[in-house]
Amino acid sequence: MTLTKANDPSNTKTDNWSNAIYEIFIANQIRQVVYVPDAGHSGLINLCHADANIDDVVLSSEEEGVAHIAGAWLGGDRGIMLMQSSGVGNCVNMFSLITSCKIPFLTLITMRGEWGEFNPWQLQMGQTTPELLKLCGLIVHRVDEIDQLEDTLDSALRIAFDGSQGVAVLLSQRLIGRKDFIGQK
């Protein structure tokens, strides 16, 4: 048996961009945040959880989140889904809701399987995520450096909510930091 321990996700680098995203959520009246947890999103998840004006919902699977955000929008709430790239494949059929019904949909995706990835099982979804999202009718933005974050998210929010469109923002593995494991035999 191998014991593993992930890096502490609440390091300073993570907090910087989590706070920036959270502030943008507030400024844009985001009322529901649904997620399948990722270490990279954990700072943002904590901020949303602590905010009484945001309903935060932990999902069993990412496909629930697509339907959930559609329902939230139909009831007048703006919602956003957080997930990691491995969850994108779980959403494929459910994305028909977004395209068929013209529902504004925004997801922030922390990338795995692209930069210094230690786990080969992450590589397939990591490498196919951008093209798969486009095939499913979503517009894809990408953030590699923190100083691109605010502009990129602003663009994504406008396209999604002003244009009734599905948009994904990919947060690159270089931005969130490579996931390191300390293994012990």
Partner: peptide
């Protein structure tokens, strides 16, 4: 598979 989830998002809104 999405009916209950969609209704849940609506219920919160």
């Amino acid at each position: 598979g999405g009916t209950a989830s969609l209704a849940f998002g609506l219920a919160l809104a």
